[in-house]
Simulated scan of single mutants.
Amino acid sequence: MFRILVKQPILRSSIGFKSNIYATQKFTTFPGLRSFSTSPTLSLIYKRSAKLKKAPVEMEEERKVLKDARTASDIEDIAKIKTLANNKYYQKTPLLLKPYMRSILLRPAPFIISIAILQQFLSIIPFLLLWYLFDQYEIKPPMLPENIVTKGIELMHNGLVNWDSEQGDKHRAEMSGAYAYATIRVLGPLIWLSAIMLAPFFDQFVIRSISRALKNSFNRFKAPKTKIPVE
C-alpha cells in the first residue's frame, strides 16, 4: 500500500502558533486491483539473476596448468602435468621460468641429459669453426689466459701426432687449435647458460621425438601379423 503525506491545517492557540504537524493517510485502493509490490511486472523487472558459482581454487589452478598443454609431449604427460596444479614450487615460479621448472619436476633425467648433449654440441662445433678460422686467417685472439693457451698447446701437440706435412704447417695448426681451445674455455659459462636455456626445448622436440619414433617402430615390429585364411 502507498502512503502519502497530507499537510494538516495550522492550529492556533491562545499562546501563539504551533509547529506544522504532518500526518499520514492510507491511499485507498480500488477493489480488484493488485498492489504494485506484488504484481508480475515487478517480479519481471527486478528479478535477480542467478549467481554463478565460482570454481574451486584447485580446479582453477589445474585449468591454468592444462592451458599450456598443446604439444604431443604435453598430451602424453597430461597425468603428470595435472599434479603441477598443487605444486607450490611450480605455482610460485615466474612465467618465464616455468618450462624449466616443469622439466625439472616431470623429467629430471632427460633434462640433465639434454644439458650435457647441448654443452658438448655448443663446445665442439664452435671449437672446430674457430680452429679453421684462426688457421686460415692467422688470427691470434687477444686477452687469452696464458695458462689455458699452454694447456691447449699441449693437448693439440698430443692430438696431432699423426700430422701429415702435406696438410700444412704443424706448428701453425697447433697454435690455432690452442687459441680456439682457450676461447671456448673462456666462453664456458656462456655455453653452459645456453645449454640450460635450450634444454627443455631440446628434450621436447629432439629426445622425445626420437624416443617416440623408436617406440612406434618397436611396437610395429612386435605386433603380430594377421594371416589371411586361404579358402
Rank of each mutant, 00 (worst) to 15 (best):
L198K: 04
A85S: 11
K18Q: 13
S176D: 06
W192Q: 06
I153E: 10
A180M: 04
I10L: 15
P229E: 10
K67R: 15
P200D: 05
F111A: 07
L129I: 14
S37Q: 10
S14L: 14
E154W: 04
S103T: 11
V161F: 07
K80P: 00
L97M: 12
V149G: 00
N87T: 03
I117L: 15
F218Y: 15
Y132P: 00
A109H: 04
T28R: 14
L214P: 01
F205K: 07
I104R: 03
S73H: 06
A182V: 01
W163S: 01
S35H: 15
V230W: 08
Y132I: 12
N219Y: 14
S114T: 02
F17H: 10
S14W: 11
Y46Q: 12
V186M: 06
F221G: 09
I184Q: 05
L133V: 12
K140W: 02
S73D: 01
K151R: 09
S35N: 12
I125E: 08
Y46I: 00
K222F: 08
Q120L: 09
Q91Y: 05
Q25G: 04
F121S: 10
Y46G: 03
S73Q: 14
S211R: 13
T93H: 01
L155F: 10
I10R: 12
K227L: 13
V6N: 08
A50Y: 09
L105R: 04
S194C: 11
K26M: 11
A85D: 01
S37K: 11
A173V: 05
K151Q: 10
L97Q: 12
I153F: 02
S165N: 15
L84Y: 05
I184D: 01
E76R: 10
Y132H: 13
L44N: 12
